[in-house]
Amino acid sequence: MQDAGRLMADVRRRDAAAFEALYDGFGRLVYGIASRMLADTATAEDVTQSVFLTVWTRPEAFRGGNVGAWLARVTRNRCLDVLRSRAARPSAEMPVDVADETALDDAILARLDGARVRSALALLPVEQREPIEMGFFDGVTHDEIARRSGIPLGTIKTRIRTGLRRLREHLAGGAA
């Protein structure tokens, strides 16, 4: 794929070809996140369309940094909105949206792909990998993770932190 930051700049100039290239590069990522979080093909498609049409209509929302990480956060936040609307108890606590406007850039984000991340996650002990995946994809808070797993909250938090640090090391070191 061409440089994603350059493609975003071209999308700002209403370049449909750049937009199409951006979809080719990140469509699977966006749809994959939505599919996994929502477990509903039709809604995942709706979210995917919503995310990319937002890119087309409001490209200025991207303020620099890593395009894929930004799209992933936008997608996750949209999915959290859907999960909230589905919640049987609207007052039940759900995670707050994480800011997606941060101009995040980092060496480990520069060459990510699904297989590489899955390999890196697989290197984590299951007690660290599970709360990380639940926290990211299931749209639940760490309290809910602790409740579901029957593990003390403090332990869950420490495992998430330790797991993220190890994940970073694996991704940075190419161990995956």
């Binding site: 080719d24 699977r28 994959g32 599919s35 990480a69 941060t102």
Partner: peptide
């Protein structure tokens, strides 16, 4: 700042369960 990129990277694990037909159609 160190952990946020690792957390964001987790998203990339999600493309292992896709119906490959869907993405071109959505596109």
């Amino acid at each position: 700042d160190a952990l946020r990129p690792a957390a964001d990277a987790v998203a990339y694990a999600a493309d292992d369960r896709l119906d490959l037909v869907d993405c071109p159609r959505i596109k």
